[in-house]
Design a protein around this nucleic acid. Structure first.
Lengths: 342, 342
DNA sequence: TTGAAAGCGCTAACAA
DNA sequence: TTGTTAGCGCTTTCAA
């Protein structure tokens, strides 16, 4: 069953160019050791036939796939309609569009992690990008030995301690936000912290603390309440913060909130209690979500460079696949978007 | 260079099971014409060796790839940080996770459309999903003859008239929104329309008009202003709408805005002019963006079932690939989310 | 129902 | 620098 007509093959190119298939292969793959005239003949034949190499055949022979998987935990994609996710994908896709790699988006079913594992180990991809949000997820432990993996966000799992990852510098960002509040003259700066089982929650708390107290040790009376990154939890946290000062004067004149969702909830409660923003309480959020500018007042917040994160993840993985040795940890800087809330 | 050790191959399974490679292949692919005992032996061998078929080899031999491409125009992924996009991808990925297909995310460079074209025609994918936003884009004309394609959103290009597409029923949705305004007792209902080079903009205008005027013919004095789906354009449109009644009483008591971004801008202007929402003007948006509930007042809006759209696109394409004959056009219903703005 | 054998289109020693 | 020649791991006639 020979290929006749239809899609041109390397063999047909060889015939037209009057050289062997091996030579065509060399030319197509940019090998140097080919006579100029032979190369020219091949190029002409390629153009004439409109030849496009078949990636599948190439993969089978070369044992490379030119495919990179981007793995997203199912919970991120369903329960959390996480606004962080889309820009990451875009960043990855954009970075990859300059290369020969193709992006495979994989929703990892947490119900049966072996499916993902087997897929990754089944020779379908050259490497993987994991957007990890969950501390508890152990699915990828050990996988890194067989397949190059780059994590988005520092994995908290200690067994993954030496993994490659790209992360936003959450601590520095939190310091940036808190310092801004100091700069505009606020003296009692509270914090609404996020989940403490994720680096984002932990590091932002630490960053805030280092500016407020000068060191990183927690104090029993510090102005912190904890939420879980949802808007409702931000509202509840603000209520608790306000309730600390029942009767007396307000204990704080500013608050750094670990994400914009919670900040939205906090501002709502502030308004309900008749307090003005930023008059009574200045508010700085984190993420620069799309809705941040539509809040009343527009929210001052730390811009989350999600697309950059995705792009850097891709670059690091590509570098590893190319045999280069990129740094294990890449931290991406952020900047503050100053609007009206602080 | 024979494969020794490492990943188990079909040949190794055949050896262990004591049958030929062809029989193993039949069992693995669920062929019926295999003796029960032979099948059992194969299954045992598969389990023992922890065999996973190599998709690349399978593709080469079968000329199928089990890959579906999701193509996103570059402009969507960069300029517009389109919140519509992420749920679509999620919907597609989720629908595909129940199948053997794998998702290939492709950013289509608009600068050189041949790259995408060649990729699609290069035997890399079995079919493609195109999230099309742009009327001007002719890249995919003719492609549908060589490769099954399903569009997300009705292509406005007339040459694509007989293409398969899945779309939200924009007209019905606009009628839903406008009728709601009628139901709450509003009589003069204005419209801030979106870009008229996209079906979403056109159809929402038509839907509004059919409720307001009873037919679909535009009238010279109708209460419409046009925006381009950005927040700023919504603000400008509202200003123009308000300026129509300089001196006199307000010409309208409600407005249906073609998307939430523009609605946010419109509400801002309303507030700036000292008008209350919904007291003076009731507002209904479209999309149910994440920020819709954080606006002041929380926005009543048409929920855009983007994830469903993605899922249905995938289902239709899979159906086509399976040789079934799904309807060319699929319209997805929407529902209204009633909050405080109307 | 089964196995033998010929590919699928390409890469990669190896020898020339 | 070039061509020859084995494969890569699987599917799929074809004949038995």
């Amino acid at each position: 069953m020979k290929n006749t007509g239809g899609v041109p093959t390397l063999e047909m190119v060889a015939a037209v160019a009057g050289v062997s298939r091996a030579t065509v292969s060399r030319v197509v793959n940019g090998s140097t050791s080919v006579a100029p005239e032979a190369a020219a003949a091949v190029h002409a034949a390629v153009a004439e036939l409109n030849y496009v190499p078949n990636r599948v055949a190439r993969s089978l022979a070369s044992r490379r796939t030119d495919v990179i998987a981007l793995i997203v935990p199912e919970s991120t994609s369903t329960v959390f309609a996480d606004p962080f996710f889309a820009p990451v994908v875009r960043g990855v896709a954009r970075a990859l569009s300059d290369t020969d790699y193709t992006l495979n988006l994989l929703i990892a079913s947490e119900a049966r992690p072996e499916k993902t594992r087997r897929y990754l180990l089944g020779g379908n991809v050259d490497g993987a990008l994991v957007v990890s949000h969950h501390a508890e997820d152990h699915s990828y432990v050990g996988l890194g030995d067989s397949l190059p993996i780059v994590f988005g966000g520092r994995p908290v799992n200690p067994e993954l301690a030496d993994a490659h990852y790209v992360d936003v510098d959450n601590q520095a960002s939190a310091r940036l936000a808190t310092s801004h509040l100091v700069d505009i003259g606020r003296h009692r700066i509270a914090h609404i912290a996020g989940r403490q089982d994720m680096p984002a929650g932990i590091d932002r708390l630490t960053g805030w603390r280092s500016v407020v107290t000068g060191d990183s040790a927690p104090r029993p009376d510090e102005l912190v309440e904890f939420g879980d990154f949802t808007q409702e939890s931000g509202a509840v946290a603000m209520q608790r913060l306000l309730d600390r000062a029942t009767g007396g004067p307000l204990a704080f004149d500013a608050v750094f909130v670990a994400n914009d969702q919670m900040a939205a909830g906090a501002i709502r409660v502030l308004h309900e209690r008749g307090l003005s923003v930023p008059g009574d309480v200045a508010v700085v959020g984190y993420d620069d979500d799309t809705f941040a500018s539509t809040l009343t007042p527009p929210l001052t917040t730390v811009h989350q460079p999600s697309a950059d994160l995705g792009a850097r993840m891709a670059e690091v993985l590509v570098a590893r696949l190319a045999g280069r040795n990129p740094p294990r940890h890449t931290l991406i800087p952020t900047h503050l978007v100053v609007r009206a809330s602080a």
